[in-house]
Write a protein that binds this DNA or RNA. Structure first.
Length: 306
DNA sequence: AATCCCAACAACCGCCATAGT
DNA sequence: GACTATGGCGGTTGTTGGGAT
């Protein structure tokens, strides 16, 4: 037996709201508030609507300061950045965009932004040297994986990975690692990483880093040409592509200075101890962006790139 | 002008978390 | 602790309008 419906569906109006209904709802809420009970509200307001429907209508369209219309480039960047970080948690993303609703952002993502991004990150061309699916690898014994890489950390594993051949870019991924099954939604980040084709996972004593490689940042398309990432805030996206997860906390890695270069594998260059030290000393901002010391970053870049 | 197709978006559905009893 | 009611959320569907044919 299923759950009882929240209202008598036979006796409630459905479909688009009329201006009269909007006016009734708006007037009632402005005068009396919601009373903390949406289920009872429609009857009190004289509406033949389900309480949930009233709530949605109010939250998405009628309440004050709702912003409709075109999303700005800044808003695009924020959405992309947050999606890469926390996934499809629209209500949280909406909280960062005053006047925008979760429904609005969700629709915008599904109809426009996703396509934009897919244009930036074309369907993956598999690299021959990449073998196992990270998701399988991270959820099974590392020794049983077909890893082709050789990170030498004492108790860490390092997988070079490739999406399954049927992968189309943004489909759900079963991330079964205990680290990744924390409250933080990492699937979405993984999806973007998948879309980015090339990414790595390192697991080092509860310190797990994943992200795209430097090569991916140039984003070669299938015909060998490069597509510009700037148009859609590539830097922001790129900055999201290294995630450190320790325990059930997630951090995003940013290099501290104004460097155009990007560090391929933070774990290799900074080392797990340095990363852990920074986490433990609170070297991150409110958004859990983990910033490395500028000099250290510069040294690292000088050493490895110049 | 009629029809088809598709993108956009409003609204609904069902699940989950939580508070109250 | 079990149960119920409700709110909140994300995924999905239905409707509509505009452009293409």
């Amino acid at each position: 037996m299923g759950r009882a419906p929240c209202c008598d569906k036979a006796n409630v109006k459905r479909g688009p709201w009329s201006p009269e209904e909007d006016a009734k709802l708006k007037e009632y809420i402005e005068k009396s508030g919601t009373g903390g009970n949406w289920i009872a509200l429609p009857q009190k307001a004289g509406l033949k609507r389900c309480g949930k429907s009233c709530r949605l209508r109010w939250l998405n369209y009628l309440r004050p300061n709702i912003k409709h219309g075109e999303f700005s480039d800044d808003e695009d960047r924020i959405i992309c950045s947050l999606f890469a970080t926390i996934g499809s948690r629209w209500s949280i993303i909406a909280a960062q965009l005053p006047g925008r609703t979760d429904n609005d952002i969700k629709n915008y993502w599904n109809t426009k932004l996703k396509k934009k991004l897919m244009g930036v990150f074309p369907p993956p061309q598999r690299k021959s040297h990449q073998v196992s699916n990270v998701l399988q690898a991270s959820s099974s014994s590392p020794s049983s994986s077909t890893s082709t890489s050789s990170y030498q950390g004492s108790s860490s594993t390092y997988y070079n990975t490739t999406p399954p051949s049927s992968f189309t870019g943004l489909e759900p991924i079963s991330f079964t690692s205990t680290l990744l099954s924390s409250n933080y939604s990492t699937n979405a980040a993984a999806q973007l990483l998948h879309a980015h084709q090339s990414y790595q996972v390192k697991d080092h004593n509860n310190l797990l880093i994943f992200g795209s490689d430097h090569q991916a940042a140039s984003c070669s398309s299938s015909d060998g040409s490069s597509s510009s990432l700037n148009e859609y805030g590539a830097t922001d996206l790129q900055n999201c592509f290294y995630n450190v997860i320790e325990g059930n906390q997630r951090f995003m890695i940013s290099n501290g200075g104004d460097f155009n270069a990007w560090i391929e594998n933070p774990l290799d260059y900074y080392g797990p101890e340095e990363i852990k030290r920074l986490i433990s000393t609170g070297s991150c901002n409110n958004n859990n962006h983990l910033y490395f010391d500028e000099h250290k970053t510069e040294e690292t870049l000088q050493t490895h790139y110049f």
